[in-house]
Design a protein around this nucleic acid. Structure first.
Lengths: 224, 224
DNA sequence: CCCGATTGTTACCGCCCTGTCACCGGCCGG
DNA sequence: CCGGCCGGTGACAGGGCGGTAACAATCGGG
């Protein structure tokens, strides 16, 4: 599990790094916004701890940039009493925050809670009913047919639907989970992705059996 | 969206209630642990705000009991500087916490973030007498008939009537709850919506059994 | 740097949801 | 008796939403 910690305060950065390393995480450290972003691009960590006050680029900018290309869990660090900052951070897509000063134990608990919520520590069942998803190979098998190759986004979409197999998942939620942002005007992206995925996995894409539409609500995967 | 707020401080409870009601949530209030648990059992809310320090049963116990039977999002309220409490709360399965004092805006932001993370629309089918409402699928089943698809507005209307099953809901209130703010002269909208809903759920739409008219007052749902 | 794969954007079609108008019938007070 | 109010019903136009296609932009590996 790879965690990126970005903070301009060298001591705090080292403390965080030490704490997380003790807990068995692989830690990447960055001292300012730009290098945090660069490291994020190169290493694609599984979780990001981000100080709001940093030279170069504020934590907000970094968070926004990260959200543009990933839905990785983000924890923001802030000083006490800056509630406006918190609201803005959460609106920008941050998943959680910590108020300085905090104890290492608290940080660890929050990180674990977030990873648990994000479903990153339990390998979800890959097979369900007719659908068998191979995340490493980026392929699905339907019933006992040939494996079909999926793109990154298709895989992610199918993963989300499979995790909620039999239940409708709202379009907004899919947008958030697949792309990481939630401009609800972006339904066209989802339409297209669903269409392309159907071409690959449905026997007759015009009459979907697996990936069904719940009009006005979202989509659901029928696996039985 | 139903939210249970449990706090022994009456003023704070009312403030939370007012804030959430303003934001359009249906709020249930409890003043101590046991009644919070009881209300949780009976109402199955979509999110719980839980004060750690309560008479009867501590927030910890309530949180633990809730976690034994549900994964509903839980936000814990705590006083400043009790970090051990926070860690324990998160380990017990709480999803988030707030340090008192907090601003209403912060509370709202955290609740929204949590609902978003939790998927916001995954409410279990709501059953009452002959009527079973599946909010995530946008469908109703009457008695043991086939599920009928509902539109957004029909769903909202039925939801409101079902929440007050057996009691008359005034037309003005329905107008506000279904459409938002409207001048009360807009009864035609409601007439049409009721008519369309009856076509879908009544055995004989000309003689309504379920969705009955309370002349001069409003409508009520008869489920038994 | 190039080519193909992948992803995002624009446009269009068809369905049906929704708001609105128009009309009917019953009830009530003048 | 009649005119107004209320609730129910039918019809219809506009627009929103989902599906599809075609194209542009971007990514990624050789």
């Amino acid at each position: 599990m790879k965690i990126l910690a970005a903070d301009d305060d060298r001591d705090l950065r080292e403390l965080i790094g030490f704490t997380l390393a003790q807990a068995g995480y692989l830690v990447l450290k960055a001292g300012d916004g730009p290098s945090a972003l660069k490291m994020f691009e190169e290493e694609s960590p599984d979780l990001v701890v981000l100080d709001i006050n940093m030279p170069g680029a504020s934590g907000f900018q970094v968070c926004e940039a990260i959200r543009k290309r990933s839905r990785v869990p983000v924890i923001m660090l802030t000083v006490r009493g800056e509630e406006e900052d918190l609201v803005r951070a959460l609106e920008l897509g941050a998943d959680d925050y910590l108020t300085k000063p905090f104890s290492p134990r608290t940080l660890l608990a929050r990180i674990k809670a977030l990873l648990r919520r994000a479903g990153m520590e339990n390998t979800a069942p890959l097979a369900m009913g007719r659908v068998t998803l191979d995340i490493e190979e980026h392929t699905v098998k339907i019933a006992s047919g040939e494996p079909v190759r999926l793109t990154k986004l298709e895989l992610r979409l199918l993963q989300m639907l499979l995790a909620n197999a039999g239940h409708t998942v709202s379009s907004d939620r899919l947008l958030i989970q697949v792309w990481g942002h939630r401009n609800s005007g972006d339904r066209q992206l989802l339409k297209q992705l669903v269409h392309r995925l159907r071409q690959k996995i449905e026997a007759d894409p015009a009459v979907p059996q697996l990936l069904q539409t719940a009009s006005g609500a979202g989509y659901k995967l029928v696996v039985d």
